[in-house]
Amino acid sequence: MNDQKKIKTIEVISKNIKVNSKLINESSCMNDFAKWDSLAHVNIMLELEKQFKKKVSTSKMSDLNSVNKILQFFK
């Protein structure tokens, strides 16, 4: 289940920042990709909210700035 979440999360990030999913892993963070900016981040958060049916508050959004933190939150 957790692996599925990880795959889905990376897939959503990859789609929104237009980077091959193979280049994204658990330790990746916003600063690693120029295209993972605030606009892409909102879209990622909204899509993950829908996927995992868990609301992300706007104050939490800024904190979820890495794949690891996102996975922890949606675990």
Binding site: S38, L39, V42, N43, L46, T58, S59, M61, S62
Partner: peptide, 16 residues
């Protein structure tokens, strides 16, 4: 600005 104005404003839009 990002957390308390930008994100809430964007989230309030029907279409981003």
């Amino acid at each position: 600005l990002t957390t308390f104005i930008y994100y809430p404003l964007l989230k309030s839009l029907k279409k981003i």
